[in-house]
Design a protein around this nucleic acid. Structure first.
Length: 462
RNA sequence: GGCGCCGUAGCCAAGCGGUAAGGCGGAGGUCUGCAAAACCUCUAUUCCUCGGUUCGAAUCCGGGCGGCGCCUCCA
């Protein structure tokens, strides 16, 4: 029984999709004015593990993730770069997709762009206008919060104390009430705009997620995901405009990932603690080491990113990979007493942890415990072919959920094989200096050797 | 000021009322030509702090202290 924490109710709830045969989930993606940073990817990895686990649980799933390719920031940065908005965002969309691949994040079924859905947003705004929930000012259109009494239910915010009627002139747009938010922004000099049925302009930020999620998933759907910073006002506003337009509950479960901080502080460019995926790759880290680190803490707890932590993740992941590597061997047929039981029990522990609101730390604990027991069995030479196959199935299952193992078998390398054979010969004739020299040479090339009773094994450093 | 998250060994991190998982690091040992990997033993009488509830609290309640976040764009 899979339980998930729902921000809306502030409780863990048994997950039951609206349509038992199909889970429909939406996740807020990236605003593409720059490369995504490791904090962004913490959320995307958490959402990825969620979707993988739902599939493991047997659900078919439609997962939509938007990309915001028009907003204040994208416009500002593209103008600074003197590049047309579309070309500017294209570059970062491509980079984002590359980073997703590097982190082994599964591609959502749909990745809609805001600029491809202007008509859908306009349609939604018109519906809100027809219902008398909006007003205009200087060509912009605002959502009137006082028309939506349950406003604040997601973020547990009581906005009634804020001064209504105060004229706020933030960002040169006119609101009647500070709590109101903009649905449609009138065109400004030199900015991109669209000619539409609600007039010329461009969409406010919140409307795109409502329009695109409902277009692809229906008026009510199961899961809406994002970082905690989106709870207010973004998701609150989405609820208001969506439910006000349809009269139906918008989302059943709200899933929010806590923030990642760096060395105890909020990541920011000015502090110099701002890292993209590319930064870490440039420093020589395997992307899945980052994924492992992100997966090793529970998604609802703040994660303090440090390079020491990244190193610990590296070593831990390597332990799992080494175990997997030990399983690549020929074994006598049959099975050993009790091993099937051990595997089944460990698998049950792993799943119980994941069932409990994706407790990845607990799940990894179960996995490591099992690995130690299996290593002992291997040391004792008690593992047999059927056990080995079962163990590999379990590991594949773990990997289908966590997606952290860089398990591709090392691609054969003729040159390496020759050097290893040369070293074998040297060792046989007890020329250890020569043997060690070859080992050092290979190590400098990132090839690590291990001598086992069955011969020398090698692997690439992560 | 309002709302929220967090504080468990040197570090990371589970734990959700029944007597401290797991990983990294460290010490010692087994194995090895030496390594590596692996395994074994040890490494928190105690969970920021002070009170309370309870037969029993890291876990529940209240007061402190400390860190982080949101309330404006933010995953």
């Amino acid at each position: 029984m899979f339980q998930i924490f729902n921000t809306l109710t502030r409780k863990k709830e048994v997950f039951e999709p609206l349509d038992p045969s199909q889970v429909r989930m939406y996740a807020c993606g990236l605003t593409v004015y720059d490369y995504g940073h490791i904090g962004n990817f913490r959320t995307f990895v958490a959402v990825d593990i969620l979707r993988r686990y739902l599939r493991h649980r047997g659900y078919r799933l439609t997962h939509v993730m938007n990309i915001t390719d028009v907003d204040d920031k994208t416009i500002e940065k593209s103008q600074q770069a003197s590049v047309p908005l579309k070309d500017f965002t294209h570059k970062y969309i491509q980079a984002f997709l590359e980073d997703m691949r590097a982190l082994n994040i599964e591609t959502p079924e749909r990745i809609p762009l805001a600029t491809d859905h202007i008509p859908d947003m306009v349609e939604l705004i018109r519906r809100l206008e027809q219902r008398g929930l909006t007003y205009r000012g200087n060509g912009s259109i605002y959502f009137q919060i006082k028309e939506f009494p349950s406003y604040g239910k997601l973020s547990n915010t009581d906005l009634s104390g804020m001064k209504a009627g105060a004229r706020v002139d933030a960002d040169n747009y006119e609101k009647l009430d500070v709590r109101d938010f903009v649905l449609w922004k009138s065109p400004k000099e030199g900015e991109p705009f669209w000619e539409t049925a609600v007039g010329p302009g461009r969409p406010g930020w919140h409307i795109e997620c409502s329009a695109m999620s409902m277009k692809y998933l229906g008026k009510s759907f199961d899961l809406h995901c994002g970082g905690v910073d989106l709870i207010f006002p973004h998701h609150e506003n989405e609820i208001a405009q969506s439910e006000a337009a349809t009269g139906k509950p918008f989302v059943k479960y709200w899933f929010h990932c806590e923030h990642l901080i760096v060395e105890g502080e909020k990541m920011s460019k000015s502090k110099g603690n701002f890292y993209t995926i590319r930064d870490l790759l440039d420093r020589g880290y395997h992307p899945l080491v980052l994924r492992y680190l992100l997966a090793s803490a529970h998604y609802r707890k703040p994660l303090n990113f440090t390079f020491d932590g990244l190193h610990q993740a590296d070593v831990s992941l390597e332990r799992l990979c080494d175990f997997r590597l030990r399983l690549e061997r020929h074994l006598p047929p049959g099975r050993s007493e009790g091993l099937q039981e051990l595997i089944r029990a460990s698998r049950a522990k792993f799943e119980a942890a994941m069932d409990d609101d994706l407790n990845t730390s607990g799940a990894l604990g179960a996995l490591f415990e099992w690995v130690r027991e299996m290593n002992t069995v291997l040391d004792q030479g008690k593992l047999r072919e059927d056990d080995r196959r079962e163990a590999l199935i379990f590991l594949d299952c773990v990997n289908a959920i966590l997606g952290v193992f860089p398990f591709e078998a090392p691609s054969p390398d003729r040159e390496v094989e020759i050097l290893i054979r040369e070293r074998e010969d040297a060792r046989k004739s007890r020329e250890f200096a020569r043997a060690d020299q070859i080992r050092t040479e290979l190590e400098q090339r990132g090839i690590l050797l291990e001598d086992t009773p069955e011969g020398t094994r090698w692997k690439r450093r992560l």
